[in-house]
Amino acid sequence: MVPVNYYLIVAAILFALGVLGVLIRRNALIIFMSIELMLNAVNLTFVALARHLHSIDGQIFVFFIMTVAAAEVAVGLAIIISVFRLKGTIHVDEINLLRG
Protein backbone atom coordinates (compact mmCIF):
# COMPACT_ATOMS: atom_id res chain seq x y z
CA MET A 1 0.00 0.00 0.00
CA VAL A 2 1.62 3.22 -1.19
CA PRO A 3 0.91 6.29 1.01
CA VAL A 4 -1.21 8.96 -0.63
CA ASN A 5 1.57 11.51 -0.12
CA TYR A 6 3.77 9.72 -2.67
CA TYR A 7 1.13 10.18 -5.33
CA LEU A 8 0.72 13.83 -4.35
CA ILE A 9 4.47 14.41 -4.58
CA VAL A 10 4.60 12.83 -8.05
CA ALA A 11 1.66 15.01 -9.10
CA ALA A 12 3.36 18.13 -7.67
CA ILE A 13 6.57 17.42 -9.61
CA LEU A 14 4.61 16.76 -12.81
CA PHE A 15 2.69 20.03 -12.36
CA ALA A 16 5.91 21.98 -11.79
CA LEU A 17 7.41 20.38 -14.91
CA GLY A 18 4.35 21.48 -16.86
CA VAL A 19 4.77 25.04 -15.58
CA LEU A 20 8.47 24.90 -16.47
CA GLY A 21 7.59 23.73 -20.00
CA VAL A 22 5.15 26.62 -20.48
CA LEU A 23 7.71 29.13 -19.17
CA ILE A 24 10.81 28.05 -21.08
CA ARG A 25 9.55 26.66 -24.39
CA ARG A 26 8.70 28.92 -27.33
CA ASN A 27 7.00 26.32 -29.54
CA ALA A 28 3.23 26.71 -29.27
CA LEU A 29 2.64 22.96 -29.65
CA ILE A 30 4.98 22.10 -26.79
CA ILE A 31 3.44 24.82 -24.60
CA PHE A 32 0.10 23.18 -25.33
CA MET A 33 1.45 19.74 -24.41
CA SER A 34 2.79 21.16 -21.14
CA ILE A 35 -0.71 22.37 -20.33
CA GLU A 36 -1.95 18.81 -20.91
CA LEU A 37 0.76 17.61 -18.52
CA MET A 38 -0.49 19.99 -15.83
CA LEU A 39 -4.06 18.79 -16.32
CA ASN A 40 -2.86 15.23 -15.88
CA ALA A 41 -0.99 16.09 -12.70
CA VAL A 42 -4.22 17.50 -11.28
CA ASN A 43 -6.07 14.35 -12.39
CA LEU A 44 -3.58 12.21 -10.48
CA THR A 45 -4.19 14.33 -7.38
CA PHE A 46 -7.94 13.91 -7.77
CA VAL A 47 -7.78 10.12 -8.13
CA ALA A 48 -5.31 9.66 -5.27
CA LEU A 49 -7.33 11.81 -2.88
CA ALA A 50 -10.63 10.24 -3.98
CA ARG A 51 -9.26 6.88 -2.90
CA HIS A 52 -7.79 8.31 0.29
CA LEU A 53 -11.08 9.98 1.26
CA HIS A 54 -13.23 6.95 0.29
CA SER A 55 -15.11 8.99 -2.27
CA ILE A 56 -16.00 8.56 -5.95
CA ASP A 57 -16.44 12.26 -6.69
CA GLY A 58 -12.76 12.71 -7.52
CA GLN A 59 -12.96 10.16 -10.32
CA ILE A 60 -16.05 11.85 -11.72
CA PHE A 61 -14.23 15.17 -11.70
CA VAL A 62 -11.38 13.53 -13.62
CA PHE A 63 -13.93 12.33 -16.16
CA PHE A 64 -15.15 15.91 -16.66
CA ILE A 65 -11.59 17.27 -16.81
CA MET A 66 -10.86 14.81 -19.61
CA THR A 67 -13.97 15.99 -21.48
CA VAL A 68 -12.90 19.62 -21.15
CA ALA A 69 -9.33 18.72 -22.17
CA ALA A 70 -10.57 16.97 -25.32
CA ALA A 71 -12.65 19.99 -26.36
CA GLU A 72 -9.76 22.30 -25.47
CA VAL A 73 -7.30 20.34 -27.59
CA ALA A 74 -9.61 20.32 -30.61
CA VAL A 75 -10.18 24.09 -30.50
CA GLY A 76 -6.59 24.91 -29.49
CA LEU A 77 -5.03 22.90 -32.30
CA ALA A 78 -7.44 24.53 -34.77
CA ILE A 79 -6.21 27.92 -33.51
CA ILE A 80 -2.57 26.80 -33.86
CA ILE A 81 -3.24 25.70 -37.45
CA SER A 82 -4.88 29.07 -38.19
CA VAL A 83 -1.88 30.89 -36.70
CA PHE A 84 0.48 28.76 -38.78
CA ARG A 85 -1.47 29.54 -41.96
CA LEU A 86 -1.35 33.24 -41.14
CA LYS A 87 2.27 33.62 -39.94
CA GLY A 88 4.02 30.54 -41.29
CA THR A 89 5.42 29.71 -37.84
CA ILE A 90 4.21 28.61 -34.41
CA HIS A 91 7.13 30.19 -32.58
CA VAL A 92 5.29 32.28 -30.00
CA ASP A 93 7.86 35.10 -30.00
CA GLU A 94 7.00 35.80 -33.64
CA ILE A 95 3.25 35.86 -33.09
CA ASN A 96 3.06 39.55 -32.22
CA LEU A 97 0.15 40.88 -34.25
CA LEU A 98 -1.30 42.66 -31.20
CA ARG A 99 1.88 44.68 -30.68
CA GLY A 100 1.23 48.29 -31.76
Binding site: V2, Y7, V10, V47, A48, A50, R51, Q59, V62
Partner: peptide
Protein backbone atom coordinates in the same frame (compact mmCIF):
# COMPACT_ATOMS: atom_id res chain seq x y z
CA UNK B 1 -0.69 2.53 -14.62
CA UNK B 2 -0.84 4.63 -11.46
CA UNK B 3 -4.61 4.88 -11.81
CA UNK B 4 -4.71 1.06 -11.96
CA UNK B 5 -2.68 0.96 -8.73
CA UNK B 6 -5.20 3.37 -7.20
CA UNK B 7 -7.98 0.96 -8.24
CA UNK B 8 -9.57 3.48 -10.58
CA UNK B 9 -9.87 1.07 -13.50
CA UNK B 10 -12.39 3.12 -15.47
CA UNK B 11 -10.27 6.27 -15.28
Amino acid sequence: GMYFLLEAQFI
